[in-house]
């Protein structure tokens, strides 16, 4: 595409709440991390310019609130995405198990052309967590769960999702690229997003443009706007 403009890519991040979607985005865009949990309400948006194979592109990252699924923002929200990132917490089995339904639902709502080729990326986050921290995390989530206004996922304890299992799933879905990251320690975040950008760019294929038919002028096409000119 012979455009002077940087291409803009719409990237949607999905996954259960608490898995670290917002943290990943913040780490990637702002190079910041906070231990505090701040539930995302509705959606957050961040923009970042990246170089992909010598090409400057703008990533428009759409971070969503996991708790209410697709209901909160409307179908139109997901329209025209160039890539969808599915995030789970490697320490939380349930967050992995729901990936399938996140993916399915995205495909239904966004109804992209050629769903079988639509670029997804799967991220297993929080690989930095050690046993002790996991216990603390467990406590945090218990506290949070007590708040009825936040529909927090049920933390299943310290069951690690084996890398093997995750990769098998990705493979079964048409070789979805898989990354294990830590938003906290900034491990692998850059690489994951690089792949996201690269795969999103594939969506930016050329569009067929027909020159519209010319106008035939005859008295049938009469247009009188009631003005003297």
């Amino acid at each position: 595409m012979a455009s002077r403009k940087k291409v803009l890519l719409k990237v949607i991040i999905l996954g259960e709440s608490g898995v670290g979607k917002t943290s990943l985005m913040n780490q990637y865009v702002n190079k910041k991390f906070s231990n505090q949990y701040k539930a995302t309400i509705g959606a957050d948006f961040l923009t970042k310019e990246v170089l992909v194979d010598d090409r400057l592109v703008t990533m428009q990252i759409w971070d969503t609130a996991g708790q209410e699924r697709f209901q909160s923002l409307g179908v139109a929200f997901y329209r025209g995405a160039d890539c969808c990132v599915l995030v789970y917490d490697v320490n939380n089995a349930k967050s992995f198990e729901t990936l399938e339904s996140w993916r399915d639902e995205f495909l239904i709502q966004a109804s992209p052309r050629g769903p079988e080729n639509f670029p997804f990326v799967v991220i297993g986050n929080k690989i930095d967590m050690e046993e002790s921290k996991r216990m603390m995390w467990d406590q945090t989530m218990t506290d949070l769960r007590a708040r009825s206004d936040l529909d927090i996922y049920i933390y299943d304890g310290v069951i690690e999702i084996s890398q093997k299992r995750a990769m098998a799933w990705c493979q079964s879905k048409g070789n979805i690229p898989y990354f294990e990251t830590s938003a906290k320690e900034a491990i692998n975040v850059e690489q994951a997003f690089q792949t996201i950008a690269k795969n999103a760019l594939q969506q930016e294929v050329e569009v067929e443009i027909d020159f519209p038919d010319p106008i035939k002028i005859d008295s049938d096409t009469s247009k009188d706007f009631g003005c003297a000119c």
Binding site: L8, A43, T47
Partner: peptide, 30 residues
């Protein structure tokens, strides 16, 4: 665009304010 991608902004670089465009799209979508 109705996908929330920026096309034009009177002031500033429309791609850098693409986050606002996202917000607009989210509101409309809602």
């Amino acid at each position: 665009s109705s996908a929330g991608k920026p096309i034009y902004a009177r002031y500033g670089d429309e791609s850098r304010i693409s986050s606002y465009m996202g917000v607009i799209q989210a509101l409309i979508s809602f």
